[in-house]
Nucleic acid binder design. Structure first.
Ligand SMILES: NC(=O)c1ccc[n+]([C@@H]2O[C@H](COP(=O)([O-])OP(=O)(O)OC[C@H]3O[C@@H](n4cnc5c(N)ncnc54)[C@H](O)[C@@H]3O)[C@@H](O)[C@H]2O)c1
Ligand SMILES: NC(=O)c1ccc[n+]([C@@H]2O[C@H](COP(=O)([O-])OP(=O)(O)OC[C@H]3O[C@@H](n4cnc5c(N)ncnc54)[C@H](O)[C@@H]3O)[C@@H](O)[C@H]2O)c1
Lengths: 231, 231
DNA sequence: CACGTCCTGTGAAATATGTAACGACGCGAC
DNA sequence: GTCGCGTCGTTACATATTTCACAGGACGTG
C-alpha cells in the first residue's frame, strides 16, 4: 500500500517513540557497567518487552545491529539520541514554584539528560525574585511567561501549578511558542493540534492499580503463597 | 467466541482501566460545577477522546446511561469508584524520604483520593525517627519495610529512592505482600507476574516529546503563525 | 398517543500494535 | 573455504484497540 521509504516520512507509531527513551536509558546503564554490545534478547529481558518488539521498533529507523553479534551499545545509544533530537540541550520553562516545582527545579535527572530549567515562574509575590535552583536563576512573575519564553526561544514547558490555573498557564506558554508541555496538574489540557502534551498523574495511576486489588485477587495470591488471612 | 458474561470475567483491556480515573475525575469536576448529567459527547470534548470510546469503555462494565439524556454524573462517578475499588481507603507505604519523597508525603492529592500514606521508610540515620507528614507519622528504618508492611496489610508501595536502590526496595515491599508499585526511579523493575507496576518518568516523557521538536517541525509552525525566525 | 429529537449500547469494520517465524549474514573454528 | 551458530531485519500473521454507524429507548410536544 504505502511505498517503503527508508529515509523518512514513514509515520512512526507514537508508542514506539515512547519506548525509545527507555531503550536509551537501559543501554546507557549497560555501557556504564562496561558492557559494549548486547543482543535484542538480552536487552528485552532487562526491559521487560519481547526481543521482536525491540528489533521491530528499531527497524523503523534503520539498521543498527550486526547479525550474530547484536548491537554495539555506544553506537545504538548515539543513534537513538539522534533520532530523539537529544544531541542538543533543551531549555525548559517551569511554571509553579510550590512544593512540586521546587522539587523539580532541584532534580538532577533533567540536567543530566539534556534538559535545562532556563526560567521559573510563579504568581506569588513572596516567591518572585527569590533564587531558584543551582545557578543564578530567579523566580519571575507569571505575567512575563509569554514574553520571556518567546524571547529565549523556549519550546518546552513544565506545568506545576494548581489545577485551576493549569489551562491558563498552558495558554500563556503556547502564546510564547512553547510546543511541548509536561503537565503535573490533574486536568486535561485543551491545546492546539501542534502542541504535544504528556500528563503525570500519580493519583490516576494508583486508582488504576486498585482495580486489580479486589479481595478475590488478593485471596488468590495469598493461596499461591500458601497463606490465607482475613483482611 | 467468548460468551457474553455481564457480571464479570470479561477480561477488560488495561487501557480502559487506565482511562477510568480520568473519567471519574472529570465527572467529579463537573459535579462540582453543579452539573448533574452529561452526554458522552460533552464528556468526550472535555477529556479529548471520542464519544464512542467513552461509551464503549463503560459498556464493558454495564449500562449506566439513559438514551436521549446522557449519564447521571453522581451515579456514574459512584459506579466508576465501585469498579476501581475506590469505595475504601487504601494504605500506602512510601520508601525514600528525600526531596521527592517529602513532596509526595506532603501532597494533598493522595489523601483527597482515598490514599493514605501509612508508613514512610528511609535508610538515612539522619532521617529515621523524624516526623513525616501531617499526622504523627515518623520515618522508619528501611530494615523494617517487609515486616511493617506485612503486619499492617499494606498492598501499595511508592518507590522514591535512588535508581540503584529501587530494585531491592521493590523486593522488600513484595516480600511484605505489596502487590502494586508506583515507581519514580528511572529503572525497569523486575517483579513477579502478580505485581502491578506503574512508572513515573518525567525525563523519558520529555525525551519522547523532543522527537517531535526538530527544526522542520518548528519551522512549519512558525509559518503557520505567519512568522519565520532563525534559531 | 404519534412524532421528532437526542443519545445510548453495540455489532461490524477499520486501524493499530504486537508476535512469530525465517531467510540471510557475520564470524569463529577447523 | 565450509560449517555451524547466533542474531538481525522483515514479512506475514495474530491480537488489541478504536471508530463507525445504526437500531431502538426515553422524553417532550402538540
Ligand atoms: N506535590 C506533589 O507531589 C504533586 C504530585 C503530583 C502532582 N501535583 C500537582 O502539581 C501542582 C502543584 O502542586 P504543589 O504541591 O506544588 O502545590 P503548591 O500549592 O505547593 O504550589 C503551587 C504553586 O503554583 C503557584 N501558582 C498558583 N497559580 C499560579 C499561576 N496562575 N501562575 C503561576 N504560578 C501559580 C503558587 O504560588 C504555588 O507556588 C498541583 O496541580 C498538584 O495537583 C503535585
Ligand atoms: N526529585 C524529583 O523531582 C524526581 C522526579 C522524578 C523522579 N525522581 C526519582 O526519584 C528518586 C528519588 O529522587 P530524590 O530527588 O528524592 O533523591 P534524594 O537523594 O533526595 O532522596 C533519596 C532518598 O532515598 C533514601 N534512600 C537511599 N537508599 C535507600 C534505601 N535502600 N532504602 C530506603 N531509602 C533509601 C535516601 O536516604 C534519600 O533520603 C530518584 O530515583 C529520582 O531519579 C525524582
Amino acid at each position: 500500500m504505502t511505498l517503503y521509504n527508508p529515509t523518512e516520512e514513514a509515520e512512526i507509531p507514537e508508542v514506539v517513540i515512547r519506548r525509545l527513551p527507555i531503550y536509551a536509558r537501559t543501554l546507557a546503564e549497560l555501557l556504564g557497567h562496561g558492557i559494549g554490545s548486547v543482543s535484542s534478547n538480552e536487552l528485552a529481558d532487562r526491559i521487560g518487552v519481547t526481543a521482536a518488539q525491540i528489533r521491530r521498533d528499531l527497524s523503523y529507523f534503520g539498521k543498527f545491529g550486526k547479525q550474530g553479534k547484536g548491537y554495539d551499545i555506544a553506537y545504538l545509544v548515539s543513534e537513538i539520541h539522534r533520532i530523539l533530537n537529544l544531541t542538543q540541550d533543551w531549555d525548559v520553562a517551569l511554571v509553579g514554584f510550590g512544593h512540586l516545582g521546587q522539587a523539580i527545579a532541584r532534580y538532577r535527572g533533567f540536567r543530566e539528560s539534556n534538559f535545562r530549567i532556563a526560567a521559573v515562574f510563579d504568581d506569588d509575590p513572596e516567591k518572585i525574585a527569590r533564587p531558584a535552583g543551582p545557578e543564578g536563576l530567579e523566580v519571575l512573575s507569571h505575567a512575563r511567561i509569554t514574553d520571556v519564553v518567546r524571547e529565549r526561544g523556549i519550546r518546552i514547558g513544565i506545568i506545576a501549578v494548581p489545577a485551576a490555573a493549569a489551562q491558563q498557564t498552558a495558554e500563556l506558554l503556547i502564546a510564547g511558542r512553547v510546543v511541548a508541555l509536561l503537565n503535573y496538574a490533574p486536568v486535561v489540557l485543551q491545546v492546539p493540534d501542534h502542541v504535544c502534551v504528556r500528563d503525570i498523574d500519580p493519583v490516576a495511576m494508583l486508582q488504576s492499580m486498585t482495580y486489580y486489588l479486589d479481595k478475590s485477587y488478593l485471596r488468590a495470591h495469598a493461596h499461591a503463597n500458601g497463606l490465607v488471612e482475613d483482611k
